[in-house]
């Protein structure tokens, strides 16, 4: 092989390599383009809602009831209804979810059921009974965890069915039979309480999963140190574990709430009302809801053009509400992350 030959092969190889490089750059650009596309979709939706909706949101729109077959007036009852619903849902879901996660993570044995079972088989004497309890508890924790993880993906309409089948038809009817004169229905129909509890169940898995993840970030050494210093388990949880996990718990809770605030499917049969001239007065009242209002305005309206401004205004308010909740959650997380990175 002469030196000229070698030279040409080399050049050829280098040339083909740079061609490959060029092809690759195109591919990377294409991958990047998919991100641009996603951002564009988000941008188009938000821009459309802001352009058509923001102008319609005035004080009258926020503070008055709908008029003229929903084509005029405001959405005050829907805002109040949504607020009550979200507050009730939060009050039910967050404490229960956090407590459940604490139970799963701090009170059930940390080993997997298989390991516990092995230890149980190997053990002798009076320890065996205690170890059998460990096996059962760790099995329970495992089953619950996987049930919770899967429940987070069950369609919201199924939760609506559950709300109707359990809260309204089962609990509500039983309550009516016990407290109301015969034939009177108070609890055996959709209302604020049942809708909030249905939504609470829907958000419960998200809260549990997020809280457990936050608890996992607290190093076990801290717990051990606290116990070694003589603190009880509860004192350790309250003074060491919960403060450390708080940002994570808050983020998870807020994201769960924002998801719950935008859900409509579970409310269809559990108490959302088409139109109410008054505000909900008791847990047994029906209520108006921003998301449900969007559904009604966009599918049931006899005159689409006439309802459009109100519709866009309502969507704008709903979107602002969910984005604000989301943003709060994301910001809290970002702050704690940078704190962690700074070693604080």
């Amino acid at each position: 092989m002469t030196s000229v030959d070698l030279d040409t092969t080399l050049t050829r190889r280098i040339a083909s390599r740079s061609r490959r490089r060029f092809g690759e750059i195109v591919w990377v650009e294409l991958l990047g383009l998919s991100i641009v596309l996603i951002l564009a979709i988000l941008g188009v939706i938000v821009a459309d809602v802001v352009i058509h909706g923001a102008g319609h949101v005035t004080w009258t729109f926020i503070s008055e009831s709908p008029r003229q077959g929903l084509t005029e007036g405001g959405i005050y009852p829907a805002i109040i209804g949504t607020t009550f619903l979200v507050l009730l849902m939060t009050a039910a879901a967050v404490p229960l979810g956090v407590a459940t996660a604490v139970y799963l993570h701090e009170y059930t044995p940390p080993e997997r059921p298989k390991q516990a079972w092995k230890r149980f088989r190997a053990a002798e004497g009076p320890d065996r009974r205690k170890l059998f309890g460990t096996v059962l508890l760790s099995l329970l924790a495992k089953v619950t965890r996987s049930a919770v993880a899967n429940l987070a993906g069950v369609p919201s309409i199924v939760f609506g069915l559950f709300g109707l089948g359990f809260f309204i038809q089962f609990v509500g009817r039983a309550m009516d039979a016990a407290t109301q004169p015969a034939g009177q229905i108070l609890w055996g129909q959709g209302n604020l309480l049942w809708a909030a509890l249905t939504l609470a169940l829907l958000t419960l898995p998200t809260v549990i999963v997020a809280t457990e993840e936050a608890l996992r970030t607290v190093p076990p050494e801290l717990r051990a140190a606290s116990i070694a210093l003589g603190a009880t388990r509860w004192e350790t949880i309250r003074r060491i574990v919960l403060p450390g996990a708080l940002p994570g718990i808050l983020t998870g809770a807020i994201l769960a709430i924002s998801r719950g605030a935008g859900e409509v499917a579970p409310l269809l049969f559990t108490g959302a009302a088409y139109y109410l001239p008054f505000l909900p007065e008791a847990l047994s009242s029906q209520f108006m809801h921003l998301g449900y209002h969007v559904l009604i305005l966009s599918t049931q309206s006899p005159d689409v053009e006439a309802t459009k401004p109100v519709l866009y205004g309502t969507v704008f308010v709903l979107l602002v509400l969910t984005f604000l909740l989301n943003l709060t959650g994301v910001l809290i997380r970002a702050r704690t992350r940078s704190k962690l990175r700074a070693g604080g």
């Binding site: 407590a99 799963l104 009170y107 049930a147 429940l151 549990i208």
Partner: peptide
């Protein structure tokens, strides 16, 4: 400490109960 153990255990079991109920009641109807 005992009290809080009872509270957390109770809450945990309560939530687990409800999760089981979701299965039961959707099928029941």
């Amino acid at each position: 400490d005992r009290l809080m153990t009872v509270v957390f255990t109770g809450a945990g079991w309560f939530a687990i109960l409800f999760i089981a109920l979701i299965f039961v009641f959707t099928f029941r109807e």
